[in-house]
Simulated assay, not measured.
Amino acid sequence: MAAGGASGEEITAWRPRVEGVTEVFHAHFTRHAYPMHVHDTWTLLIVDEGAVQYDLERHAHGTPLGTVSLLPPHVPHNGSAATPHGFRKRVLYLDAADGGPLDASFIGPAVDTPDLEDPLLRRRIGQLHAALARPGDELEAAARLTFVTERLRERLRPRLAEPPRRAPDRRLAASLRELLDARLVPGVELAEAAALLHAHPAHLVRSFSAAYGIAPHQYLTARRVDRARRLLLDGVPPSEVAPATGFHDQPHLTRHFKRLVGTPPSRYAHSAPRR
């Protein structure tokens, strides 16, 4: 959902079908200032233009370009532009309930250090936003969310003795490939796959990528496109091919088909020589 005003202020907000993300919020504000308020979610914020200044737990903070800000649930904060031209931001509201991306033990560290200068984390968050904006790419978004939260944990609690990362598991990778093949059209959520295969989502994605040189969502998309090619050459209309191969809709099919094949589905379907 997008909305704008005469002042040039704009917002876009939606609720993605990705477990752990309760809302995506993009905004361009020139004059709006947030009063003190709280959320029942984690607020993960990046600023693309300008800067935001805010108070958290009676301490002043800011978001210069390149900073990642993580505001914990139930902790009052405000917010306003730190420059005359306002700011443009992208926000993810992450579930704070038990089983969410971050548990309550991270609230204290986030209060102490809400602003993180971390280019890798910021790049991962940008990639996550891009995936969340594309309906049908929920498996990719879930994988990217896993790596974002993993990086947040590393930054917020670096002194804790974390268990070493496990080496990639080829058996686990093969099991995931079998699952993806079996669920080619309906698909499978990353959390469901991890539960079925008794693996942590990040370890599952890393094992698959190391074994096959391709991420799980890329593998699934490529298999779907292959099936779409066969149906198109059999004369099935492109409008019917998308749902038959697991794509969200025809634009979703077209985007990935053109990227992998080099031409749109409709043109591909009519490329066969006449007999």
Rank of each mutant, 00 (worst) to 15 (best):
A6K: 00
S7R: 00
P16C: 14
V18Q: 13
A27D: 10
A27Y: 10
A27I: 05
H39D: 05
D40A: 02
L45Q: 11
A51P: 05
H61Q: 07
G62E: 15
P72S: 01
P72G: 02
P76R: 01
S80A: 15
A81E: 06
A82P: 04
P84S: 07
H85P: 02
G86Y: 08
A96E: 13
D98R: 08
L116W: 10
D118Y: 10
D118N: 11
L120G: 07
R122W: 02
P135W: 12
G136M: 08
G136L: 12
V148L: 04
V148A: 04
L152F: 07
R155K: 13
P158S: 00
L160Q: 12
E162Y: 09
R166A: 00
A167N: 01
P168R: 00
R170Y: 09
L176D: 11
D181A: 04
R183G: 07
L184M: 03
G187T: 05
G187E: 02
E192G: 01
A193R: 03
V205K: 08
V205F: 04
G213W: 07
I214E: 15
A215E: 14
T221C: 06
R223A: 09
D226C: 05
L233F: 11
V236R: 06
P237W: 10
S239G: 07
A242T: 04
P243S: 04
G246K: 01
G246H: 00
F247S: 08
D249G: 06
L253D: 08
L253A: 05
T254G: 03
H256R: 07
R259Q: 15
G262C: 13
P264V: 07
S266A: 15
A269L: 08
P273S: 04
R275M: 08
